[in-house]
Amino acid sequence: MQKTPIIKAEHLTFSYPGDAESKPVRALDDVSFEIEEGSFTAILGHNGSGKSTLAKLLCMVNYPDSGELLLCGKDLTAPDVTEEDILAARRDIGMVFQNPDNQIVASIVEEDVAFGCENLGIPSAEIRKRVDQALEEVGMTKYARSSPHNLSGGQKQRVAIAGVIAMKRKCVIFDESTAMLDPLGRQDVMNTAMKLNREDGITVILITHYMSEAAMADRIIVMNQGKILRDGTPSEVFSDPEAMWDAGLDVPQTTELLYKMRKAGYDVRLDLFDENDCAAEIARAMKRAREGK
């Protein structure tokens, strides 16, 4: 099945301008990839590898120095793009940031969810409907009239996600949205992200440092020093743990364990990310080894 790519990037480069003390930083260097509509992609990379920079480019908050960027088939790097085209492109791609506090604008939950729709100039009654639906979808209806200040980090991120849903965006980028949360909050946000992708068909790009989260994606892009290091399914990317370790990254604990088993001479698969599957595989391998002797 051939789907149209919702994002198509060709040879993107981007540098942060330097100032008196620092030289310009080349944050992205010849990055090319395509993201299919409705897919779930994880982006991995150590600190400073350019993940957030890439996300800001995709949201049209920063503009690439060179290269081509097509969002929903529209070339935003063409010489004739106008301010309006960029604003229109921004409607389709939303972002959920790392710090839940610094993206909430209003002091009442439902008003914050409505903020994006209000900016789009949608009629009041329609906003009301969308906000109620969005809050329902992320399970925050109970808190519609509360102050975001009193919510937990995970709940605040769900409010931010509701804002994205209410705007009916086609694609959401999560930029380390789970980094400041406790395990329960992380689970919450991940479940909501999965639901968004599986049920509503929204394209999800998940930037993360957690390998277990990345393993849930259809595809993983690994960034290193502003370049794409690897790009493939989780099984492909994690099949070579040594390369990941060299790039200063981890692999899921299950993969690490299986890899060590393999090095110790057991015949095991590496691409199992579920703990139970992993345990079963090890049991099988050990049984086979015993019988072989």
Binding site: K56, R90, R91, G94, G116, N119
Partner: peptide
Amino acid sequence: TAMECRCY
């Protein structure tokens, strides 16, 4: 940045 992303 967040407000800009939300089309403000």
